[in-house]
Computed example of a mutant assay.
Amino acid sequence: MKKSIVVAKSLFTRRIKKPNYYWMIFAPILLAVIGLFCNHFMQQQVKNSNPSIAIVASKNIKNEILQQNKLSKNHIHFTNSHLHSLKQAQLYLNDGNLDGILYIKNQNDLSDVKYFYKKQTVSDSSIKKIEQLLYSIKTQKLAATMGLSLKQIQTIVSP
């Protein structure tokens, strides 16, 4: 029994001195770290792929749009800029600081809404998300003026 322990100790000490032993221990750890780094990098790319859009409208409309965007899961990134004119926003759009501008001229019923964007940075899905967001705000405003309850709105809007 004593001989087998001596042989095991000598074999173990010989193997520890070789780099293959350390590679066997640290390779899975290194692989896991590389995988976590790639996952983090991909998540950052997805976050940055959402276009940044400025809203040129009154404060009330801006707050309603931002609040409705938080409630919905559209993941549209509206910049919290204080742009008051369309010309100023278009300068930012041309400089590359913005990907799109949501311009609302008529504040009461959201009938005159224009959207300016760069074609290469904004996809059709983000335009549809903005349309859905504005549609929900418009239905809420109309329901409030007509005095409808939330349950009545849901029955009207449901497919």
Rank of each mutant, 00 (worst) to 15 (best):
L36W: 07
T121V: 07
P51N: 04
I153D: 13
T79S: 03
Y115T: 08
L30I: 09
I29E: 08
S125T: 15
Y115R: 08
V157A: 10
S126N: 12
H40C: 07
Q44S: 05
S149I: 05
A57P: 08
Y22V: 06
K2H: 08
K119V: 12
D124V: 09
A8Q: 09
Q132K: 14
I25W: 03
Y135M: 11
N20L: 10
L148R: 00
N80P: 09
S81I: 10
I5S: 02
L93C: 01
Q44G: 09
V56S: 04
H77A: 12
L86Y: 06
I156W: 06
L102F: 03
G96D: 03
A89T: 03
Y92D: 15
I65L: 06
G96K: 06
N20A: 12
I130W: 13
Q132M: 15
L133E: 00
I53D: 05
T139P: 13
I16N: 01
N50W: 14
L11P: 00
Q120K: 12
N80K: 13
Y92V: 12
K47E: 15
I101K: 01
K128H: 12
L91V: 12
K118F: 10
T155Y: 07
Q88T: 15
T145L: 06
L66W: 03
G96E: 04
P28A: 04
N48E: 11
